[in-house]
């Protein structure tokens, strides 16, 4: 128990922003000597470690680098510098329903999403009843996803993600989509996940929610960790700096 699941050491991430907008061969040929690429340092040396069973929340203003941090953990990006080490299977919930194809049915999308998250088709087959039941989609599961409301897509996405036996759940502000009942169900599921030894890293602007479920809070400001400590302590400091943050 209590082994380190996520380890970030001196992680930096720099993005190149093109001012001209569209990349094309013409601009490449015409402007190759004076291409205007602005550099944007989003993360400037972040150290973070999360141990098994912990629930860590990342807070901070828009543009502080929270989503970039989660994307690095989900292996969407490679860090420009530093190291990211992850032990265990990750289920990223960066945007519910992002991996769905609108023309395929809910059922077909469950297979598709499940396989991306690392299950075999047999494993998905075995869990299919639970996934469908949790999503509360009923008969709609056979209809194309484009006919779903955003709430229905969110339910399906969450349902798949929590049933893939991930050891680490990475959640980016996505629980606010469903209705009240479903939200409660999600939190119940998250509790269950944690009791089973699962690790969670989440980003949220809802400070009350953060205080409720996080053991530890990391305050990110302009790409640097300002404070890393207990939830009450860090949230209080964050509010003290600017009461408008709430």
């Amino acid at each position: 128990m209590n082994k380190t699941m996520i380890e970030m050491k001196g992680v930096r991430k720099t993005f190149l922003l093109s001012k001209s907008g569209i990349a094309s061969i013409k601009t490449l040929l015409l402007w190759w000597k004076r291409r205007e690429l602005a550099k944007l340092d989003v993360l400037k040396g972040v150290d973070l470690s999360v141990r098994q069973g912990e629930c860590v929340a990342v807070i901070g203003k828009n543009g502080a680098g929270k989503s970039t941090l989660l994307s690095l953990l989900a292996r969407i990006y490679k860090p420009s510098d530093g190291e990211v080490t992850i032990h265990g299977r990750v289920a990223p919930l960066l945007e519910l329903g992002a991996g769905f194809h609108p023309d395929l049915s809910g059922l077909e999308n469950i297979y598709f999403n499940g396989v991306i998250l690392g299950l075999t088709r047999e494993q998905i087959q075995a869990r299919l009843p639970q996934i469908v039941e949790f999503s509360e989609l009923g008969d709609h599961i056979g209809a194309p996803v484009r006919t779903y409301s955003s709430g229905m897509q969110a339910r399906l996405g969450f349902s798949v993600a929590v049933h893939v036996d991930a050891e680490i759940l990475i959640v980016d502000e996505v629980l606010a989509v469903g209705d009240y009942n479903f939200e409660r169900k999600c939190f119940a599921k998250i509790d269950e996940f944690r009791k089973a030894g699962g690790t969670i890293l989440l980003v949220s602007h809802q400070l009350e929610l953060v205080k409720k479920i996080a053991d530890r809070v990391v305050w990110l400001k302009n790409g640097i960790v300002v404070q890393d400590g207990s939830a009450d302590e860090v949230v209080a400091a964050y509010l003290a700096e600017d009461p408008a943050n709430n």
């Binding site: 994307s71 989900a74 969407i76 960066l94 945007e95 992002a98």
Partner: peptide
Amino acid sequence: LPLIKKIYF
């Protein structure tokens, strides 16, 4: 692109 911005494979 929307897919690979959200999930790794």
